[in-house]
């Protein structure tokens, strides 16, 4: 019980921290400090935060500010040119990119798994969920944890008769995008019903919470809760994580290695934008996504900002990648990082 309360407290603290916008506690930027402002996805926020802190140590002349407000809102700010860079797990559509006269360069920054987390007393991590079962849970068709369909997949577990409480994201989210895109790919019923998007109408009226941390908090506070959050966060705060059935029919637990496997089976095209809603491979984890930094192609209006931003992103793609695994993200393959660096160089100052 103490453990449960502690987890809830940690999650809640994370949530509160997540809700707090970065404040200007440092002295106001003088002439020699360049401020680069960005906003977007909550999915990679722990990693971006780490990058910003690490980068700041050697670069006192730059201050990178990142507001983790969700892919939906980050994309809007970026499209309205209110930030220097955006971040989104859903990248941008061609249509959105054409709308910007300065041009857009997508740069994959890292990748991560979207995990299904649950809170059922006595059931440890690794509950096996076949594809139709987790689709049916989110379609509100399976409503009890001891449903024969779940029980059959986990003969060695004794599942309690506990109602399933689905928790989803209420804000426009790239995590939702990756998750629903996967569901829509593996299930016709999902594709025709709720569909895929950053914000959807959840079947059966799921409980909604803000941000990855919000969903994690809600699941940890609700017995019988189930939700989807980014792997790093789920792992760090010790939520129980399900093993999902992949396309090859194997049950895979998310981890750096299985995520790597997923990425290997999904090449990136020239525009560096690719989704793999249902990846091939024997040991690929089924729900993973790249997350992108959204940059403008032309920073000639504020070359100073552009220069520092380029240097920072370049550092993230090279030196910064070593922080990925510790925080539960998937390190970019060297050839992809290389491609991204090349793309970065094409940005005009």
């Amino acid at each position: 019980m103490i453990g449960r309360h502690f987890i809830s407290f940690v999650v809640l603290a994370l949530f509160v921290v997540g809700c707090t916008q970065p404040q200007d506690v440092e002295p106001l930027p003088g002439k020699d400090v360049t401020v680069v402002r960005g906003a977007g996805a909550t999915f990679p926020n722990p990693l971006y935060g780490k990058w910003i802190d690490e980068y700041a140590v050697d670069h006192p002349n730059v201050r990178i500010e990142y507001e983790s407000i969700g892919s939906g809102e980050g994309t809007k700010l970026f499209l309205n040119q209110l930030v220097d860079f955006g971040a989104s797990d859903a990248a941008l559509t061609d249509e959105q990119m054409e709308g910007i006269d300065r041009g857009v360069q997508l740069v994959p920054a890292t990748a991560g798994c979207v995990t299904i987390v649950y809170n059922v007393d006595g059931v440890p991590s690794g509950l096996k969920l076949p594809r139709e079962v987790y689709t049916d849970i989110f379609l509100d068709k399976i409503r009890w944890w001891n449903d024969p369909k779940i029980q059959d997949a986990n003969p060695d577990l004794e599942l309690p008769r506990l109602p399933i409480a689905v928790v989803a994201r209420q804000d426009g989210s790239g995590t939702t995008f990756a998750f629903t895109k996967h569901l829509a790919t593996i299930s016709d019923e999902w594709a025709k019903g709720p569909g895929a998007g950053k914000e959807i109408d959840w079947p059966g009226g799921a409980m909604l919470a803000a941000g990855n941390a919000g969903v994690a908090t809600r699941v940890s506070r609700v017995p019988g809760g189930i939700g989807y959050v980014e792997f790093g966060l789920a792992d760090r705060i010790g939520l129980t994580i399900a093993s999902l059935e992949n396309k090859a029919g194997n049950f895979v637990t998310p981890s750096g290695a299985t995520g790597m496997e997923t990425l290997k089976n999904a090449p990136l095209p020239e525009n560096l934008r690719a989704f793999f809603p249902d990846p091939e491979g024997e040991t690929s984890y089924p729900i993973a996504t790249y997350t992108w930094l959204l940059l403008y192609k032309d920073y000639s209006e504020s070359p100073e900002v552009g220069k520092e931003l380029k240097a920072f992103v370049n550092w993230c793609l090279t030196d910064g990648q070593r922080f990925s695994e510790d925080l539960g993200y998937i390190r970019l393959a060297p050839e992809i990082a290389e491609k991204a660096v090349t793309a970065l160089e094409s940005i005009k100052l």
Partner: peptide, 28 residues
Amino acid sequence: NANRISVSLFSPGNTLAALLANNFAEAG
């Protein structure tokens, strides 16, 4: 914050004020 109508006392639901509070921040 669940978008459903239920007579049950124990069911989650939503209210107008909560809807506004939760959605305005990112309506942008």
